[in-house]
């Protein structure tokens, strides 16, 4: 089953630190390729903290790992601002020319057992087309 969630991108100091050192490290991947979900939403999806989720919308899709939130926010999810979250951000802008980095609508579902967390090299080759 899939859940329709609204995703807000956030800053995370550990992810920032890893990204400054390398975009290609496992550390940056593990700090970036994740989605923080409310307990209720995680249970609704039947997954546990650390399991892989497929996050998908009209713009694109990524496989990232689930993180249990310490806070309560059903229907709302958070992702660190990264190449992974940008796979889901539309280039349509509001009147002021700002794209929707916050409030990304996407469907979230458990990833297939064979699907690994999306790698940065995969993202780069998608961008290069």
């Amino acid at each position: 089953m899939a859940l329709e969630l609204s995703i807000i991108t956030i800053r995370d100091i550990f992810q920032d630190e890893a990204g400054k050192k390398s975009r290609y490290s496992e550390e940056y991947k593990s700090q970036s390729a994740l989605i923080i979900l409310d307990k209720q939403d995680l249970a609704g999806l039947g997954v546990k903290d650390g399991q892989s989720l497929l996050v998908k919308n009209d713009v694109g899709s990524v496989v990232v790992s689930a993180r249990l939130s310490e806070d309560t926010h059903p229907g709302l999810a958070f992702m660190p601002n990264s190449p992974w979250s940008n796979q889901l951000v539309s280039d349509a802008t509001c009147e002021a020319g700002i794209p929707g980095f916050k409030g990304i609508k996407a469907a979230v579902q458990p990833a297939e057992a064979s699907a690994a967390v999306t790698d940065i090299s995969e993202i780069l080759s998608r961008i290069k087309g």
Partner: peptide, 15 residues
């Protein structure tokens, strides 16, 4: 690094 930081289609256009 706009390819990391901008929406997918914008990154694609730049690439």
């Amino acid at each position: 690094d706009p390819l990391s930081s901008l929406p997918f289609a914008t990154a694609q256009a730049l690439a």
